[in-house]
Amino acid sequence: MNLVALWCYLTLAAFAAGCVLKALRYAAAPMHLRWELYPLPAGSGGFGGSYFEEVDWWLRPQRRSRLAELRVIAAEVFTLETVRAHNRPLWLPSLAFHWGLYLLFALGAALLGAGVLRAAGAPVTAVLDGGVLLSAWGAAGLGLATLGALGLLARRTLEPRLRRASAPADFVHLVLLLAVFAASWGSWLGADRHYAGAAAFAAALASFSRAPGMSAWTAAQVVLLGLFLAYLPWSHMAHFFTKYFTWHSVRWDDLPADRRHAASVRRTLMLPAGWSAPHVRRGGGRTWGDVVGGGEGEKR
């Protein structure tokens, strides 16, 4: 195993661990109070998708549709619908950027997947060994992602309002990605246009065998991509999977209180409340149960 392969294993593991840890962090957060935002996709009611539109709503069956949620999310993922609707100047560069990334991640996953299947003795189409199709696939992904990233960077740099509202991290992310793309273009143009080398490298990674030699461009590409992947879950770019929580677990969470919620609230009322303001501490209570129960208010 050479150093580049070792780097790959480490950064891929860091990426996976980062995603899992972050997802667990949100999933294991205490039950939150309802904070949904309408409209909801489908729902049981009328225009706003709300059961509150109905009289005696608690006596009626609640209708929810995962399919309707998926339709909304699919429109968000594949067409960036809200950006199109509310921020048209940013829509095209952002759409190109995201589609480029989808294509590139799909290419990487296909090559790794082929390697895994092959290592397991399963038949794999020769198309994934490298060739014109992979070359076009990679070029399309790289082209869209590069154009998109350059467009986003240009807007962020040249548009005063966007520049003012940006954090240093926003520039760091784009520059890091552009560095990955530059190395990838170097590799595509000068060393591995048909991704045969990439396919062989992915197969070696999947089978834990000795990785083949690679050009400096390709090595740079792998190193930078690994760095990006290891960092990705800890940046705001993690929205590619945390969107599940922001939309499904917060924005669309209109489940009325049930026994599970009640049990959870009973537990949380036992938690210590550390806030220091006098009105919170009134009555000397230490737990949330004490805080809720204590406090007649001060007469003016």
Binding site: H32, T246, A273
Partner: peptide, 14 residues
């Protein structure tokens, strides 16, 4: 904090 802000921790972090 999980204890001090259990009520809104998840949506706030997100």
């Amino acid at each position: 904090g999980r204890d001090d802000n259990w009520a809104f921790l998840q949506p706030l972090l997100l």
